[in-house]
Amino acid sequence: MKRSLSTIANKSSAFFQTVGEYLRLLLNIVYWCKEAFKNTGSIIKQMAHIGVDTLPIASVMAFFVGMVLALHSGYQFAKFGAEEWIGRLVGLSMVKELGPVLTGLLLAGRVGSSMAAEIGTMKVSNELDALRTLRINPVRYLAMPRFLASLIMLPVLVLYADVVGIAGGALTAATYVNLEPSVYFDSLFKTLTFSDIFEGLIKAAFFGAVVALTGCYKGFKTTGGARGVGKATTSSVVLSFLIIMILDYVITRILV
């Protein structure tokens, strides 16, 4: 009994320590954003990196998600002869929820993990210490550009995924329930407002920040050689997933 209590105490103190370190890194990164304009080169490089890494797979994902949404809703709505509702359903689910969340998870898997691996490798091979001896702050040099690039790029990617997903939905609606694309888009634009799109992009910006912050955090915390790097990589993905899911609920709760 006593032992299990002390394990719980240890675990929870470790948890609060992690939260504290995580938030400290966030503040540290935000502080260094003051030098963003002196580092535009590396921010743009990171943005390009993110784009190249995620665009192809984001396209495939969004297209198929849009198609599946149209398939499910088409099947149900067809029973009541309400096929034109497909447009609304696909549009709203894509823009407000699935676009940001799925693209965010994709970013965590593709980009967040490689940030953790890259920084983790630098940590275990003393390159972070080498940076410090050259009077270069690793948070400014490595984390801040990745954070800003990810925060800017995820909304862009989400906007793109929304468009692709809606197009996928239109294709299925046209082929599966013979819904005229003009009817589909009419119903979509009647319901979809700018604030819906904005809500999705706000989420995306938060998720982008979470992915980079988590990747960098896990990278900086890496110990124990190549194995440690592997562990940091996977745990960055798991942690990003968790935080994205929780944050998704919180943001939706605040914005609706």
């Binding site: 003393n126 390159e127 210490d129 080498a130 001896t133 009077r135």
Partner: peptide, 19 residues
């Protein structure tokens, strides 16, 4: 530490070049 680090250079055991 910044002004003090100015005085130092360090050659790491593993060289620690940026790959």
């Amino acid at each position: 530490l910044k002004p003090l680090r100015k005085k130092f250079g360090m050659v790491f055991q593993s060289s620690a070049l940026f790959n």
